[in-house]
Structures are given as C-alpha cells and as structure tokens.
Design a protein around this nucleic acid. Structure first.
Length: 715
DNA sequence: AGGCTCGTCATTTTT
DNA sequence: TGACGAGCCT
C-alpha cells in the first residue's frame, strides 16, 4: 500500500525515509524538504510498525521546530501518536532529570535559570566572593561556565594555565555549589547533568538504550560537543541514529556548534553513504545559482549542489546606495511598488547582519506608515514584569531560590535597602542557608507594610490564598496581592506592563488546559519550567500583515517571496570581527548563503558607500560576496542613472579632469587618520565638492574616504 | 530610595 | 550615535 506521505517524495527523499537498519546522515540543502523527510520517516516507522512510538526519540533545537514536527506527524498519521519523546535537547533533558531527580540529586521542583537569571546568580556570587568586577566581569565568568559545560567539563575537569583563568574557574566551582544549594539548574546544566547521569548509572543507561531504538536529530550541524556525546551514549551499540543537517548552513559556531560532528558521525557510526537532498523546492534558479556560486568558495565542505526544476526567474537586483538612508529609501520604494502590485507585506523580508542596522530601516518604515515586525529582542517570558510575577511563584515553589527572593523582596518597593539586604546575606553566609531562612530567623512581627518581616508575611499570605486555586487563579492572586499590578497601574507608562501581567494569567490558563496530570505542585513546577524553556514566541500575537525585519541568523529556517539583504559591505558582512577568527570568513560566507537561500522569487542585494556607525560616517567597500556572484545573474541598479558613479565594482580610477595639483595629498604619500592610523594614498575619485580619496591603511585595510569629512594629516 | 550624570562600549542567539 | 550600568548626589 502506498501511503499518502510517501507519494510526494522525490527519489532521494524516499530513500532516506525508508532506510532500514542503518544509521544515516542526510545532507539536506536549503529548501530541500528536510522537515518533510524527518516527519515522513517517523510516520513511516510507526505506520509500518517497525518501532512503536515509545521507541522514538526526536531532537530539535527550537520549540517551534519540535511543535511543527509533532503537528505534521499527527496530520500524516491521522492521529496523535503517544509515547514518543520529541523536543529540544534542553526540553528532553529536563524531562529526563525530572523523572530521575533522586538519582541526580536535585529537588523534584528544581528551577531552571535562563541566561539572565544565570548572570544575576553569578553577580550575586561575585559580590559574596568579593570579586572586583573590573578585573573579572560576570559576563566573562558566564562564558567560561557555559563553554566548559558545552564541552562536558565541571570546574574540577578544567585545566587552567594562567592565574586569571584559574581564578575564573574557582568561581565556576563556587557557582556549582551555589546552584546545588539553591536547587536550580542553568541551560548547560540540564544537558551536562543528564549526560553525567547516563554515564554513571548503568541501569538507567541500559534502560534508555533499550527503549529508544530510533533516534532522529534535526539541524545536526548545530549540535555541540556535549550534545553529540549525549546522542552517542543514547544510541549505544544497537540503536539507529538518523541525523539531518546542512554543513553549509552552520552559522552558530560562536555558541558552541561543532560542524565537525558531521564527520564524526560518519566515522563513529560507520556511515558509508551520505544521502544528499539537492533538489530545491523553494527558490528560482537565478537565486539558487548565486547561492551555489557563493558557497563554492568555501573549502571546508562536505559538498553539494542545489538545483531546481523551476525557471530562472528574475535577475538578482544589486543596488549601490550613496548612504545608509539612500539604501533605506530604495528599499522603501521597491516595497511600495510590490505592495501596489498586490504583494502582502508579510511575504517580504529585510535581512541584515547586525541588529543595529534595523534602526534606520525601521525609521523609514514608520515615517511611511508601512507595518513591520522586528524579530529578536525581548521575548514575553523575559520581560521584567513577567519575571517579577513568576519570581513570586518560584519562591513559593522553592524557598531556597535566592535569585527569586532577591528579585522580589523589594519589588514593588517595601523600604528594604541595601543595608538590610547585606545583613541578611551575612546571616545566610554564616549559617550556610538560603536568604529566606535567614529572613525567617530574624523575623519580628511587622508594624507596617514595610520591611523584610512584612515580606515574609506577604509570601505566606499568598501561599495560603492560592491553596486549592487553579494555576491561573493563583497567578491572578500573585499579581494583585504582591502589589505588582498596582505598582504598574500607578506608573504613567505602565499600561503595557499591566496588560502583559494579564496576558500572563491567560498563558497560565492555556497551560492548564494542556496539562494532563493531577498533582497541583507538579503543575506549578512544570509551568515555571515552561516559562524558562519556552521563551514565549507564541505569546507574540500580531497577525497583522507586516513586513518582516530580522538578522540573517534569525531568518534561518524561514522563507519569503521577496528578500532584501542589506548592508553588503566589507566589515559589516563579512563582519570585521570574523576576519580575525579562525574559519571566520567561511562562517560569514555560510551566513550569506543562508540569507540568499531565504528568497523564493526575488532577491535584492544592497550596500551603501557611506554608513553612519557609532556616530561616525564610515566608508566601506562593497562586500566580497557580491563579487562572487556571476555577472549574468545580476542586474545592477543605480549605475546608469547616476553617471557620476563609476562602473560597479570596477577598480576605481583616478579622475582625469582634475590636475594633480588639486589633490591635497599626493598619490603615494603617507597620511595619518584619527581612527585608522597610518596609510598610503592610492587614488582619488569624484568632483571637487565630493572628492574622495582611497587610502591603504597599515592596520585597517583599504578605504575610500570623503575628503570633506575625513580628517587626514600629512606625514 | 530614587534620580541623575558620566563613562564605556558597541556581531550573530536558542535553550 | 545611543544604550546601559555604575556610582554619586539629593
């Protein structure tokens, strides 16, 4: 019997879906139907009773991808398969640790620290350890801790070769103790602890190895060292791993992703044949060819070439703008044109390398009343007012949670100053107890609605009040009794925050509806986990038709009819920071590849000759990635219309209409620039009031500078 | 306790 | 340029 979900698969996809008894690496190019293959395979395994849902473990990187996978599988199978483990690495590890909290020595209600919670925990620790934040920054410590955990190392495993790192590592050791005492786990801890438990507990390891016979991994190129080791451990000798990924789309090395895992997988699991999905169902041929040509310049590749059965489509438009505002204006005009033709805004995206670039684009959209949505930025559960409200529940769930305690003890204000907090911290340090215990030990019946003792009464009162209430009702009690709602209602621009608090109550309602379980305490714990693990993209409503603005990184996995890639300038994209890093340029090129392959129909590449950065005008050369696209795929805009501007990307010539005596600095002479340092004058271009000079700097590369602005000194 | 000013520092980010 | 945090002043 031919199944519906197998019908639409091409030959390669079909081969991948129906692989028998062997581990596999699927090299899935952009737009090649990666998710389809992954979900179809799971449906195929279940439908043919090769394995029961219980035996399947599927891992993704984002909650969004996990949800997408689940919903597609239920559509394909016509039912909701129960018993599978599908989720993010962190979500699955959290689930595992909850089930085995005793074996791993955590309280059943342990709380999860997100990055900002982690940072405040570190800052708090530094204060106690009297670390000078000028010598060792909390960020630096956080980086060390997370990096070490990513590599599977506890403080005791880290080898240090200098006093500075030594000191940081000592703080890491103290941090581990602090987290253990407080019963909290950061993101890295979820993974590391799960891994360690599987290693040390043979019974558990054997149990899970016997259970999960089929392990599937999405976005495999983004796995870290520790994640790969965890997968390997679960797979053991007898299970089958099915990894889908694209080395050309590996853009997260900076946060621990290790593309090398793809080679390791082939080696460790004796994979002889890598299946390549190279047919692209997304983009027109011109766009795809450009992408192929760009990525060809990378040397470290497994190698693949995308092709499409769809037509060439329009040429890629390359626009050279005079300035960043000129660039924004051009994009605006084009978008208006498309919209007049009936294109929805939501099918158009503007991509940029760094967030700072969104400002001027946003400005241009606002002043022209074009609806837009900027991705990235604060998520719902990361908002201060939401975190405050949740901290009340966290403290109630776990009195050891000093982070939560400190967040709310004086918020809203209850006249508790630094002095009283320092006293409290001293007591807790001496007795080695939580702040809550310390506060209790010095409790005196409060005489007003102020002070630490009043705070204790307040928490107890809320605790009493929520007995027997639903989660949403409890949330409501917290918001009102704590004084949070009142506080924001009296704040003249607190309206949004009040509605976010109300939104939080609805979030709790929705959570309860989907929660199947009896235990009320467990429901609260799981809700709190949910708020830490799920950043709250779902809470973002905005279904209005809007233009999409985002960084290239956050565009990964998405697709749009029309895509503008902006700021294609040397120093910005590729970013100058990356040029110093090992393999930095190749990663930047993959970034460019990801950006280009987001487009279905039309692709615009824009760059500006001058750009305002950090309050200074910078003159950048066009990105080398533009030069990597063959001329026949490109239509250059703004070259003919403006005769003053020379041929695109041609080496700039000295303008002949000026005699050499008019140049303030002789060609070949040495000059000094305030920021770029020493340089040699190479050439000039432009007319007398817009005369520009090309200077090759010893340490800053070659740049075009406008004489009017550039403060050069003769040497 | 809260507001203000000054100084510093500017990729990319999910969990 | 502008956002954010530390520290100082009221």
């Amino acid at each position: 019997m031919q199944l519906d979900y197998l019908k639409d698969l091409n030959e390669k996809q079909s081969e991948a879906v129906q692989l028998q008894n062997e581990s596999a690496l699927i090299l899935a190019g952009a737009g090649s139907g990666k998710t389809k293959v992954l979900t179809s395979r799971i449906s195929w395994l279940i439908h043919n009773q090769i394995v029961s849902p219980n035996g399947i473990l599927a891992v993704t990187f984002t909650n969004k991808a996990a949800n997408e996978m689940l919903s597609r599988i239920s559509t394909q199978l016509g039912m909701n398969p129960r018993g599978m483990w599908v989720g993010t690495f962190h979500g699955l590890c959290n689930r595992f640790l909850r089930l085995h909290y005793k074996e791993t020595n955590l309280p059943q209600t342990f709380q999860i620290l997100d990055s900002s919670d982690q940072l405040s925990a570190i800052k708090r620790l530094c204060k106690i350890l009297q670390i000078d934040p000028d010598k060792i920054t909390p960020k630096e410590i956080q980086y060390h801790i997370n990096g070490s955990k990513e590599n599977g190392m506890r403080a005791k495993d880290v080898k240090t070769y200098d006093a500075h790192t030594q000191k940081i590592n000592e703080i890491y050791l103290e941090y581990e103790k602090q987290c253990q005492r407080e019963g909290v786990a950061d993101f890295g801890e979820l993974l590391l602890r799960s891994y360690e438990l599987l290693i040390s507990n043979e019974t558990l390891r054997t149990h899970y190895q016997n259970r999960f016979n089929y392990i599937l991994v999405d976005e495999f190129q983004d796995t870290s060292e520790l994640q790969y080791r965890w997968l390997k451990l679960l797979t053991g000798k007898n299970n089958i791993i099915f990894a889908v990924g694209d080395d050309d789309q590996s853009i997260y090395a900076f946060r621990g992703a290790n593309v090398g895992n793809m080679q390791s997988l082939q080696h460790d699991f004796n994979i002889e044949k890598v299946i390549k999905l190279e047919q692209n169902y997304r983009s027109k041929n011109n766009i795809l060819s450009a992408a192929n040509e760009i990525i060809k310049n990378n040397e470290k590749r497994l190698g693949k070439d995308l092709w499409t059965a769809s037509g060439d489509g329009d040429l890629i438009k390359v626009f050279r703008a005079l300035s960043d505002s000129d660039e924004a204006q051009y994009i605006l005009d084009e978008i208006k044109m498309w919209h007049r033709k009936g294109k929805l805004y939501q099918n158009i995206a503007i991509l940029y390398r760094s967030n700072a670039q969104s400002r001027i684009l946003e400005h241009s959209m606002v002043s022209n009343n074009i609806p837009y949505r900027v991705y990235g930025g604060l998520r719902f559960f990361e908002r201060a007012e939401v975190k405050h409200a949740l901290a009340y529940l966290r403290l109630i769930a776990n009195k050891q949670d000093d982070n939560a305690f400190l967040r709310i003890v004086n918020f809203p204000k209850r006249g508790i100053g630094n002095r009283s907090l320092e006293t409290l911290q001293d007591i807790s340090k001496i007795n080695n107890t939580s702040l809550w215990e310390a506060a209790k030990s010095s409790y005196k019946t409060p005489t007003s609605e102020k002070g630490i003792s009043y705070f204790i009464d307040l928490i107890r009162k809320i605790e009493d009040e929520i007995q027997g209430l639903t989660l949403a009702e409890s949330m409501d009690v917290v918001i009102n009794f704590s004084g949070l709602k009142n506080h924001y209602m009296n704040d003249k621009d607190g309206q949004d925050r009040v509605s976010n608090l109300e939104e939080l109550v609805s979030a709790a309602t929705t959570f309860s509806e989907n929660f199947n379980g009896e235990d009320k305490n467990l429901e609260l714990t799981e809700f709190l986990n949910y708020t830490s693990l799920e950043s709250g993209e779902l809470q973002a409503k905005a279904n209005q038709d809007a233009l999409q603005l985002m960084t290239i990184h956050s565009a990964k996995g998405l697709e749009f009819d029309i895509v503008f890639i902006t700021g294609l300038e040397e120093g910005l994209c590729p970013h100058e920071q990356c040029l110093i890093e090992a393999d930095g340029l190749e990663e930047e090129r993959r970034l460019m590849y990801v950006a280009v392959t987001r487009a279905r129909e039309n692709l615009y590449l824009t760059y500006a000759q001058s750009r305002l950065m950090y309050g200074q005008t910078q003159y950048n050369l066009s990105s080398r990635f533009l030069d990597e696209i063959p001329e026949n795929l490109i239509k250059k805009i703004n070259v003919i219309e403006n005769p003053q501007i020379k041929q695109f990307n041609q080496p700039k010539q000295v303008t002949q209409s000026f005699s050499h005596s008019e140049y303030p600095y002789k060609i070949g002479s040495q000059v000094l620039h305030k920021k770029f340092g020493n340089g040699v004058v190479l050439s000039y271009e432009g007319s007398s009031n817009d005369l520009r000079v090309q200077v090759q700097f010893a340490n800053a590369g070659t740049k075009w500078l406008a004489l009017e602005f550039a403060k050069l000194e003769k040497l």
